[in-house]
Each structure stands twice: as C-alpha cells, then as structure tokens.
Design a protein around this nucleic acid. Structure first.
Length: 586
RNA sequence: GCGUUCGUAGCUCAGCUGGAUAGAGCGACGGACUUCGAAUCCGUAGGUCGGGGGUUCGACUCCCUCCGGACGCACCA
C-alpha cells in the first residue's frame, strides 16, 4: 500500500507542478502536496487537499481538484492503478483494491520478515535501559522502562539497525549501604533460601527495614556514609557482604528479566566504572572548557544554555553522577562507535541529560549530537505517585503474579484448561500481554496512571484482546488443517475482498510496515500497539460479520482464510515487537 | 522565582509533518450465542478540545498570555 500511495502522491505532485509551470509559478511549490485519509472510505482511499495552491494558481481549490482529476484521468496508462475523483476542494483517489489486497496477502509468504524495512540499515544504535538499583526489586516503573527499551530495540532492528542493548546496573552508593547496614542489624546471617524468598525481594526487605533502623539508631544515616567510605577503601568484610547481597539482588532481577522477555547484550556495573570520567574532567580543565572554583571543585559554566554551573569534581577530588556518565559515554563510543546512543530514562532526568550532552559537545566530541534521551513519564497510581517509604510501590513480580491468578481464574471459569494445554503457562503469558500492552500503548513522554482495577480487565483495548484474536485465527487454521470447511477446494482470489470490513483489514495489513517504520523513526512502540489494536478490532468485526471457513463459496472461503492468515502474520510480528507473547489458544 | 512538560467525553487515552461532521476503550443504559471461540459484536447517552488573544483560506494541532497539575533547578544517583 505504501508504494501505491507514494506513487499516487508523486503523480499528483508532478501534475500540480505542470499546472504551476504553465501559470509561470515555481513548480517546486508542488512539494506542498500532502496525502491524507478521507474521513469516509466512500469518499476515497487517499485524499489530497488543494487549498495550498489556490493563491498561486489563482483558482478555487474545487476548480484545481477538478482540473487535476481530468488531467490524471487522461493519462490513465502512466498513472498508478486506481481512479481519481474531485470531491470539493479535495482530489481523492480510489486505489485498485485487488492489487492492494494482493499485496496484503503476500505477507503470508513473507512470514516473520513482513514489516521489516531497511530504513535504518547501516546504522548502529546503542540503547541503554532498565538501569536497576541493587537494593530492591524491579517495580512498575521499571516495567515501563523495560518494555520501552526492549520494544524500541526490536523495532529498530526490524528497520535494519544494528542494535546493542545495554544495562547500567547501579550497584554502589549510600542506598546500597543502607540495605547492607540493615542486614547487618537484622539479618543474622540468614539467606533468601532460609526464608524461601526470591533473592532480590529478600534484599529489598532489608532496604525497607532501614527505616526501622533509623528510628532505633539516630546515627544510621551517618553509619551508611561510613560504610560507603569503607567500601571505597576496599575493606574486605564490607566488600564480601556487598558482593553477597549484590548477587542476590542482581540474580533476582535477572530472573524477572527472563520472565518478561527482556535481555541485554552487555551489562555495565557502576562499581566498576564510577571512577571513569575523572580523566576527562582533568583534560577539560587543562583545555579550559572547565574551571576550578575558589573552593577547589571543578565546574562547568552552563550560562550558554541558560543554566548556571555544574560541579564535576568535588573539592576533595571525588566524582559524581555526571562525571561518571561523561566518562561512560566516551568509553562506549570508543568501544562501539555508534551512530546513535539512546538513554531510556525517566523524564525526571531531563536536566541531567541536557547538561551531559552539552558538556560532551563542549569537549569537542562530534558524536555528542547523536545522543538522545528517550524520556518517558512516570507511572502513577490513582492516589498519586508511588512512594517507597509509604509502601505504595507496585512490585513487578507481585503484579505479574496477581494478573496470572486472574487469568487462570478466567481460564478455569471458561473450562478451557484442556484446550489450553498448560493453564499456568498460558495464564502467565496473558498476564505479560496485559502489562506490556498497557505500558506500551501509552505515549512514552507522557505520565500515565496505572489503575490496578482497569489493568486487571482483559476486555477492550488490552493485550489479551489482541492475543485472543490471534488465538481465534489459530483455531480457524487448525480446523482448516483438519479438513473442515470448503476452503481447501477453493482458490485464493484477492479481488473478492471487497466488503467494507474486508477492505478495512486489507488496508491495515498492508499499512503495517509503515507503522513499524514510523515507530522506529520516532522511538515510539505505541504506534505499533495502536496498529495492533486496530487490526485486532477490524478482524473481530470481520469474523463476526462474515463466515470464513463456513462460507458456501469455496473461492471466497479460501480467500477469507488467506486474509485471516495475513492478519495472523501481522499480529504475530507486531506482538513480538511489543514483547507480548503470542498464543495459539487461550 | 526560573526551566521542561501536560491539560481532549464521568474515568484512562488516540488524534499522523495545521485540513473535509473531534475518535477509541472502560463505566452507564439497551440489544445479539441451536452456526467458524460471547476474553466477542452492535446500538444509545456523554465533549464551547483548560480560559483568552494571535498567525492562516483553514487551528485540538503553530505563537503569545493567563489558570491548573506534574517534574526538575544537589559537591544524590
């Protein structure tokens, strides 16, 4: 469809250029030709508004549209297949439906490669996401980050980019020392195994218990600082405890990644790289990009970008967050020269990245322009922001567990345990589909409200709804394979796909690659998610309105089944991009 | 105070680089299972697109301003 659409746009633009030239106007103005979708399919498949040319051509838009329609009809042989019609100020095109349908059905043989493009071929993209702390388990906010990062990576790859996914684990700092201190006070040498707890949750519990410790010991905060100093000094006992607890935390977090289908090509640990960047700051100081303040700290002047100044090295010479990120970016580019480095980080850190990118630019790194902060909004609860201290954080594992339970109840209520094979596994996949879709369909940059009740619903615009359509089509195909229905005797004839519901499906199947490409260009999985829902919804209507396998006419049955298969290809590929498991039955 | 960002139906959100009567889902109300899976489909009700200016042939979309919310403006990460 894309090609046909683009061809029409080019044809219209060329004709407008002719008209402009005849009137002595600049033919280049024809670039203003824009393709749109008419509000009603009965008006045409593609529409071109003529308003922009009214002034230069000194003609009313309806007259221009009429003149264009005449000219384009006259050269029917050279123009793309289809017919044109002037509708008021618009020039509308009716595409040749049979050829678009044929194109849509070709997705069946392309299979998993349908929707792939080379729009980003040759480009190396590094994408950093998740970045967990090793003092507590993943929560809902991480799930949004993870699905955004993982899904963006998959979409970029689908568009031909070479992608490196990285995870920067925040495994050092005072907050880590707090959970260690708390464990020293209350742990008594116990292990996660002793309590039958998932290892990261075990560590997280001690982090929460630090609040109790603070009440009992007014010096708790100070002690955490002291512990950090000991850690930095390499105190063997401290390091040993730190290692043990980190293994628990990271191990548990990795299990959650496995559960959600998220993976990384490379892990970086802050404990190993937090000192990098110091050298870069020294170099910048020598070259005059930075300056030494009266108190001895090294700073950078940010007035050129409307900010004040930022400390890069404390007066005692120790580094801070910015110093580390500075060094890390430089090292990464040296390791793997990327064309694009994407940081998937919450929008709270806009300031940080604005400054980081500016400093790298000032240091003379040309690639600083290729850095991109994929900023996403917070996930809030109906009552407001999630707060660790108030215990309102929605834990990732528990959320998935409760969704799985609900899905399981649904399966049992419908008596589908046998049909589904493994009810537990199916329920888990439905839960994952529900969460990932919920998080992926939202526009990344916006804050979102996670309503537990609503997310527990599997009806309407949800992941399970889309999975359900996939299961229905799979069921049709199983029946076909068993010889049910008359499809086997029929012949696939694309021109039979002419009803409104069929055409809508054809249109959506054929425009799926465009959605993937746009999602890649904008780093926005929500575009794919919206397309998935549109396809699923259109299929549901089609399924309801038209007999497929049971259609009396063999050719029509075969063709409708072929369309269903094409829809299945789109659903499978799209769900894969969104980290939503596909289900043969549910 | 400054900066960023958001404000569309009761709720949660779409609305493509400004364009033809503002769209979904949930919730509410009313329908549709002897037929391919009802985790479905159909219908009804519900919006001065936060207020006000401006640019334009045309503004939910761009600019200004005011109101309201969120986030940020650490020698924390």
């Amino acid at each position: 469809m894309r090609s046909v659409r683009e061809a029409w746009k080019a044809a219209v633009a060329a004709t407008v250029a002719d008209m402009l030239a005849e009137k002595g106007a600049d033919p280049a103005l024809s670039e203003a030709v824009a393709a749109e979708a008419p509000p009603d399919a009965a008006m045409g498949d593609v529409g071109f508004p003529m308003f922009p040319f009214a002034k230069v051509l000194r003609m009313g838009p309806p007259q221009i549209a009429a003149a264009l329609a005449e000219r384009l009809s006259a050269k029917a042989g050279q123009a793309p297949a289809g017919t044109v019609k002037a509708v008021g100020p618009y020039l509308n095109v009716f595409l040749d439906r049979a050829s678009v349908a044929e194109q849509a059905l070709s997705s069946r043989s392309l299979g998993a490669s349908y929707g792939r493009s080379s729009s980003l071929a040759g480009s190396k993209v590094m994408i950093e996401f998740s970045s967990p702390n090793t003092n507590k388990p993943l929560h809902l906010g991480h799930l949004r980050n993870d699905v955004l990062g993982e899904s963006s990576a998959r979409i970029l790859r689908a568009n031909g980019a070479e992608v490196m996914k990285i995870n920067l684990v925040n495994d050092r700092g005072v907050h880590i020392c707090k959970s260690m201190l708390s464990y020293m006070a209350y742990g008594g040498g116990r292990t996660p195994e002793d309590e039958g707890k998932k290892t990261d949750h075990f560590v997280g519990d001690y982090y929460v218990k630090f609040n109790e410790l603070k009440k009992e010991d007014p010096r708790a905060e100070e002690k955490a600082q002291e512990l950090l100093v000991k850690w930095e000094a390499g105190d063997p006992e401290t390091i040993a405890l730190w290692k043990k607890m980190n293994e628990w935390a990271v191990g548990g977090i990795r299990r959650t990644y496995e559960r959600t289908g998220v993976s990384f090509d490379k892990y970086y640990y802050e404990s190993q790289i937090y000192l990098t960047g110091k050298d870069e700051v020294q170099k910048g100081l020598a070259s005059g990009v930075f300056f030494k303040a009266e108190d001895g700290s090294v700073r950078v002047d940010l007035t050129p970008i409307g900010l004040e100044e930022k400390v890069l090295l404390r007066k005692d010479g120790t580094s801070i967050y910015m110093t580390q990120d500075l060094g890390l970016a430089i090292h990464r580019h040296a390791d793997w020269p990327f064309d694009r480095l994407v940081y998937v980080v919450a929008n709270e850190q806009q300031y940080h990245f604005k400054v980081l990118f500016y400093i790298l630019k000032r240091l003379g790194y040309e690639w600083a322009d290729s850095l991109f902060h994929l900023s996403y909004g917070l996930v809030n609860l109906p009552e407001g922001r999630m707060k660790t201290r108030e215990g309102t954080v929605v834990d990732a594992d528990s959320l998935l567990d409760s969704l799985r339970e609900l899905a399981l109840e649904e399966i049992q209520a419908k008596g589908r345990e046998d049909a589904v094979g493994d009810p537990q596994d199916t329920a888990e996949k439905i839960a994952l589909g529900a969460v990932h879709y919920y998080l992926a369909q939202a526009t990344p940059s916006k804050d979102m409200i996670f309503n537990p009740k609503e997310s527990l619903s599997f009806n309407g615009d949800t992941g399970p709804y889309i999975q359900y359509m996939g299961a229905r089509i799979s069921s049709l195909l199983r029946k076909r394979d068993r010889g049910e229905g008359g499809a086997a005797k029929g012949e696939v004839r694309p021109e039979l796909l002419s009803s409104p519901t069929e055409w809508e499906l054809v249109r959506l199947v054929s425009s799926y690659p465009e959605a993937v490409e746009q999602a890649g260009a904008e780093y926005n999985p929500a575009i794919v998610a919206a397309h998935m829902y549109a396809v699923a919804s259109a299929f549901s209507k089609f399924y309801h309105d038209e007999p497929i396998l049971n259609c009396d006419e063999p050719d029509r049955a075969a063709t409708r089944l072929a369309l269903s298969e094409a829809v299945l290809v789109v659903l499978k590929n799209g769900l894969e991009l969104l980290c939503i498991p596909f289900l043969e039955a549910m």
